[in-house]
């Protein structure tokens, strides 16, 4: 018997009698009177900069004025001035100088400040990680209360890679001192705008 069959046989033999799955609908999960405010509060508390009242041009001006170290800006927003889209032939290993990646996210989650994106949106999976600064645009109308609603919304969406992002990359491995910018972006700026 190969290992696969051996493991499966042992599991079958040793697993207890079938226990029922609980219905998630029975769980009274938290909901918020003002999900957008909650989302903003939570995402801010985990290190992101959340902004409202910026249109496409204002976002472009913000990016231009705040991120000046490198000059390579990429994004998935057509028509965002100064930000190019990824050339499909580019080798992602050459992206270490990517200063900013601008991303339009699928939806947000109020309870934890996370936004959902898939590889359909990010083009190359490594982009939201390898950039020095991450800029996210989110329609506030998409913000759901909690993770159960989030997965209801995801449903059986056919992504190849899906991702919740909640703030800039971080670590507290050295004496529990929080440092933003571990391996991924050092900052995350999120613009709430329903019209982009």
């Amino acid at each position: 018997m190969n290992s696969r069959d051996q493991i499966l046989a042992a599991v079958k033999k040793n697993q207890p009698a079938l226990q029922p799955l609980p219905a998630l609908a029975d769980l009274q999960a938290i909901r918020f009177t003002h999900p957008v405010e909650k989302f903003t509060e939570v995402l801010t508390s985990i290190g992101a900069d959340v902004r409202t009242g910026y249109d496409l041009n204002a976002i472009a001006t913000f990016i231009d004025g705040n991120f000046t170290e490198g000059r390579r800006f990429l994004g998935n927003i057509p028509g965002l001035p100064g930000v190019g889209s990824l050339d499909s032939t580019v080798d992602t290993h050459t992206l270490e100088d990517l200063e900013v990646f601008v991303l339009k996210a699928g939806f947000g989650v109020a309870e934890n400040g996370a936004v959902w994106v898939t590889d359909a949106q990010v083009q190359e999976r490594v982009l939201p990680f390898i950039c020095q600064h991450l800029v996210v645009i989110l329609d506030p109308a998409t913000i759901v209360n909690n993770m159960h609603e989030a997965y209801e919304r995801i449903g059986n969406q056919d992504y190849h890679f899906g991702l919740f992002i909640a703030g800039p990359s971080k670590t507290a491995d050295i004496e529990q001192s929080l440092v933003l910018g571990a391996h991924g972006p050092k900052t995350m700026t999120l613009f709430l705008n329903g019209g982009i």
Partner: peptide, 8 residues
């Protein structure tokens, strides 16, 4: 509230 990245 959640880890920074939850990659599927």
């Amino acid at each position: 509230p959640i880890t920074t990245y939850s990659s599927h």
